[in-house]
Structures are given as structure tokens and as C-alpha cells.
Design a protein around this nucleic acid. Structure first.
Lengths: 132, 132, 132, 132
DNA sequence: TTTT
DNA sequence: TTTT
């Protein structure tokens, strides 16, 4: 039925890019998303949310994003079960993103290069989407 | 930062209502949310998403909702770590809802009674929200 | 940039289906969306929001929806200027929907027929979307 | 019923701050939101969406935001009728925001000063919201 | 496992 | 652990 998630947060690590056996690209990363209020200790809690992107968007993210970058992500919440390396059954809850917007610049020490790009960065959507 | 989730799905079980040590009501349930497409076996996969509601909204949900009911939920994705009954460290990813809309009628065999209610059910928000 | 709208409401009239000169189907309707609170007179205000759908989704909506039906709509806010029939320049703000979920049954006096359909209705997305 | 909007865009002008007769602050501005695709002329269309904020959030926006600033806005779509200065009846469709996140820095020529602020800016919510 |  |  209806299932929509919108997040703004920072990557906790560089995206990991892999390929399925039939060659489909898939990238994963996590987002640190601060809560909109401070807790009883006066600190701002943070939620760490796993993101999955597919196909061309996966490669775009892997090529242009890195740890610490600020992004807006839109997608769908997905659940899945798997056995971890110790054989313990675990449940994954992750956001399958169909759009990722880059909201800041790569750091100077980045190998990436966005010369000439408008502030606010670019906007990337899953390559299946089409104007309408 | 920004963190928004909107879901429509059916309760997989009756809500569980508990109270924190300082008396705050908290209810939990899970939502079965069908994916918007069929998988390679022609079946429609389902995501099971845990929902948490607080205060008056928790009591409203516990009093009026039951297994199988169709609802629209709005809230925020939250992550949290805990040790399960076997002492295994686990991570919970759940939606803290600030609004729950009832989208169908209770079943006849329900003890609940919505006589005279307009179709489409009622709309409940976390009791802290106020018009603006 | 990011632009996402999610609504639940009732159609204020039957959808109007037209075709562009190159044959693309486009349907329009309006949704009555109740506010989540009552106004100072104790009444519940209602927002009337114009919806536009394209292609196969336009035809599905025109064929299966009618005045009074309850739907969940997902899409993007779009603005546009036009001259009305009196030559007055006006601005339209409408939601271009990429998914429409049917949340109730057609009325008995409907010419439509959903025999055998699962409660909760069906889920229709713009025909460009694809599983991922 | 359910009514949720999430936008990222740039202010087209400085916010206008006014007060209702009973002293409630209300600020208005418009957001330029680029479409996620280019049109048939290879240009990126832009939607201009009116935003309304109330109370403390109105004053925060008026004090810290200006033309060109990049923000993420969350709120509710609202419609309203009014007569313009020529006595022509018009319909306004605007987003009543309950949260505004500042996504970039003020320009150097700004009179505003965010010294020491963490990149990514601050997060402001309607002052009625409360942690949960 | 965690970002600024 | 799973709803219709």
C-alpha cells in the first residue's frame, strides 16, 4: 500500500557498491539523522538509518558521495530477514531510495570534483523514473 | 534533521498497551504494508513495520484498533539498540507515529462499536499537536 | 529539488478524462481533505485540492473512480499560469499524482463493479514506475 | 484526513512578517522548487510555492532567512479564497509549514550572522511541537 | 558499525 | 511473530 520516507542526514561512511549476479548495481550506506529535539540530558539523539539504492543511482552515489556528506533521500521502507556471520537470524529495516539529492559540497580533501556545479548540488533519481 | 514516514497498512496483531514507570502510555503494533508491485514469482511481498505511539494516541489505538484493521500512519523513523531475551544485542527500527487514521470499520465480531461514524473512520493525532 | 505530497481525501466529482494532441491521456479531479482539527466554530474545515494524473493511471482513475470515493494520492506540487474564460490571468496549484490508492468500495448506485476485489482496494501507480 | 508536504527549495524573496489582530505572528514567503527533470526545451522548470508559518517559527524565519536561502519545509497543503485588490475572487493554495530547516549559509552580504553554527544549519519547528 |  |  502507501509507503513513503523522506530523510535529510549525513553519510556515516562511504557508500559500498556491489553487483548482483545478473550485474545490477546496488549501493548501501547509512544516514545519521538528528532528532528535532534534545533529550533529557540536553543532547540531540541521532538515528542511524540504512539506505539501499539500485542501478544507475547506485553508481552515482558511489562515485560522488562519501562519509559526512549531507543528502536528502526519498524512498520506501523495506524489511528483510537474514542470518548474520554468527548464524543469528536478524531483521533488516532499510530505506530503498528512489531519489538522492546532494545538499552540500564535497570536502576539499575529497577526490571528487564538482567544478561549476550550482550550489545545492545535483539531484539524482532512480533511472527508471521519467518526467510527467 | 528531516525525518518523515507515511504508511498505509493493516495491523498484524492487536496493539499492546504499556505504561512507563512515570505513567506515560505507550502502545506498539506492527503494520503489514504490501509492496506496490509483484515479485518475480508473481506474488506481492509485504513489509512488516513496527509502530510505536505515545500518550493519549496510544490509548486511543489500544481501545479502537485490532488485528487486521487498515490505518494510515504518519511519523518519524527511529532506531534503538537492546538486548533480546537471549542476551543478543539487537537493533530496532520503528516508526514513532504522531498521527493514526482509521481507514476501515471494525469487524462484526469486534467488541468495538463505531455506530454512526462517518465512513473513512476518525483521525487521531498525538495529543500534543494543536491547530495552526 | 525535493517535492513530495501525500493526501487522503474524497473525490468532489467524477474524474474528467482528456487527451493531449499527441494522444496522451490526462485525468483531473479534486480531493476534499479534512483538516485534522476543528476551527473556532467547532467545524472541521476542508481543503479542496486539484489532482492531475497522466497516461494509464489517468484511464484507470477515470474508469474506476467517481465522486465521493476515498483515495490516497502521492505526487508532486506543481504550479502553472493560465487565462480563464474571462481573460483573467490565474495561477493553478495542483498535485501531479504518480500513485493513487483506492481506499473504499464504490457505492451501490455506481456503474462500477469491483466484485471479488480484496478490501482496501487496488493500488495503481503511474505506468512508468517499475519494481526495484 | 492525511495531508503532508515536504519541499526543498530556495526563497524567492525575504519573508514578510505580520501580526494578526490578536498578536499572533505569521510570516509568508515563496519557494522556488526545481523539477526533477528537464522539459522538452532542455530547461529545468521551477514551481513557485507559497509558504505560511505561524508564531515563533514565523519570527525565526523572518529573522534568519532571506531571498535565495535553501530550506527544507514540512507542512500541510491549505486552500483559501480571497478577493484581490481589483475585486477579483481568487483561490490561494499554500503550504502551512510546521518545520523549516535551514540548509545553507547566509550570503556574505547578509546582515545575518550564524557564526559558529554547524554546517547544515539549524532546525526549527512550530513551537507547539514537543519531543516524544 | 556510526555523521557535522 | 505477521495483515486482507
Amino acid at each position: 500500500m502507501l509507503n513513503r520516507v523522506v530523510l535529510i542526514g549525513r553519510l556515516t561512511r562511504d557508500p559500498e557498491l556491489r553487483y548482483t549476479t545478473n550485474g545490477t548495481a546496488v549501493a548501501t550506506f547509512a544516514l545519521a539523522v538528528e532528532r528535532p529535539f534534545t533529550n533529557q540530558n540536553g543532547e540531540r539523539d541521532v538515528d542511524f538509518i540504512d539506505i539501499v539504492v539500485w542501478r544507475k543511482l547506485a553508481e552515482t552515489c558511489a562515485n560522488h558521495l562519501g562519509k559526512g556528506r549531507l543528502v536528502a533521500v526519498e524512498g520506501r521502507l523495506q524489511t528483510r530477514s537474514y542470518d548474520d556471520s554468527n548464524g543469528i537470524r536478524r531483521r533488516a529495516v532499510e530505506v530503498v531510495a528512489d531519489s538522492v539529492r546532494f545538499l552540500d559540497w564535497p570536502k576539499n580533501n575529497s577526490t571528487d570534483n564538482f567544478d561549476g556545479q550550482d550550489f545545492g548540488g545535483d539531484f539524482y533519481e532512480d533511472d527508471i523514473d521519467v518526467p510527467f
